[in-house]
Design a protein around this nucleic acid. Sequence first.
DNA 1: CTAGATATATGTCAAATGCATATAAGGTGC
DNA 2: GCACCTTATATGCATTTGACATATATCTAG
Lengths: 228, 228
Amino acid sequence: MPYALQPYDPAAYPPVAVTVDLVLMTVLKGQLAVLLQRRGQEPFAGQLALPGSFVGPEENLEMAARRVLAEKVGMTEGWLEQLYSFGEPDRDPRMRVVSIAYFALLPVGSLEAAVGGRADLTLASADVHEMPLAFDHVTIIAHARARLRGKLAYSPVALALLPDSFTLRDLQAVHEAILGTSLNKPAFRRRMMDSGWIEGTGEREPAAAFRPAELFRRTDRHRSRHRP
Amino acid sequence: MPYALQPYDPAAYPPVAVTVDLVLMTVLKGQLAVLLQRRGQEPFAGQLALPGSFVGPEENLEMAARRVLAEKVGMTEGWLEQLYSFGEPDRDPRMRVVSIAYFALLPVGSLEAAVGGRADLTLASADVHEMPLAFDHVTIIAHARARLRGKLAYSPVALALLPDSFTLRDLQAVHEAILGTSLNKPAFRRRMMDSGWIEGTGEREPAAAFRPAELFRRTDRHRSRHRP
DNA sequence: CTAGATATATGTCAAATGCATATAAGGTGC
DNA sequence: GCACCTTATATGCATTTGACATATATCTAG
């Protein structure tokens, strides 16, 4: 039986590191964007990469991801969900590293403050298809986009990209940014109203150039959710 | 910066092991079933557990999962998909073990031969809610069931549980076993016919007690698929 | 040849969705 | 105050989708 688990002598096996990488997304100017960090060290020094970290000895995977979120953007709230795990033997040139990718969603307002204060952080378009990123991070981001698109229809995931109160127009814009298509307005409206994910506040958006729209909020049970 | 990645001295960090665990499911007598293995060693000696293994130094995660599949049931074909990763610090009493769970689907025919020949393997009902399994394997199986249920509507996943040719009644039985509900026959029929996942063979099932149904097969592009 | 059982096809209805249009409600400029 | 511009919101209608009931076809058993 190869590779039998005989953990009382871990030194007998080639060392493995476990990290988490964070695909932190938001909608910036109608476009899906992802948080990237310029690397200071080899390998891939100077290149952009997803923020990540070792998993600490006392942490579970989600705690590690949330710690990265806190360290990079100072937030502990927000949608956070395990995405996929990546373990090609050569994905890190230094040693065997298995990375558990998480994806996180935040309203753009919360992010811009954090990014503005740190020269190494950027909000880049999530369309990274031809960008040169470190490691296999292009692949990881592609997974995240696909997951986001797939969940849109049956989960309130888009609400995590909006502030506490928002108009239906805002919400539709988020959906359209994620899907890359335009949606029918009355149909979208009806679908959202019937979904149970949002409720009207009775208030209206301030200082609109024309008729102000009603402000909505998330219903309580949909602040942040995890799904396998 | 805590837990900075300094991999040139891996011995400086507490060792971590990475394993794969396999949730191998099938439909047995109209019920979703999962392959379990009785453990010979501590911890949890004598208890049932998911088959699993270390990830070898030259393997990627999927290769490791496929190797487990080959070692346990002698199959290299079949649906195999990464499920979720589990990393509670204390999930294995011996040391820190992060496990990448995969779920695999096979027609019951292929499995029964393999299970019959090995005393340590069992096909148990996938309703393991109150079964005492080793580690966090009850949780892992619950994830797998939820994933399977969720994918049924938009993916040809159920076909992986059937032999190369099958009737629509067989296919509907698989769906009903996974969903735990009964489905409307004409509606199910139309949905499958329109899905593009199956095609008629022109042949009919042999030796039916009454009018024999047509046999169908998977269309080519849906033999086995992976999705994040 | 007939009865019994199941496969397969069709018809109807309700719900969901897409699209067009009508009405409401604010601001702006006069 | 009043016309009018723009957007929000509501309504009507055609198309599609799916559930369900029922009809027809086709096999075996006897």
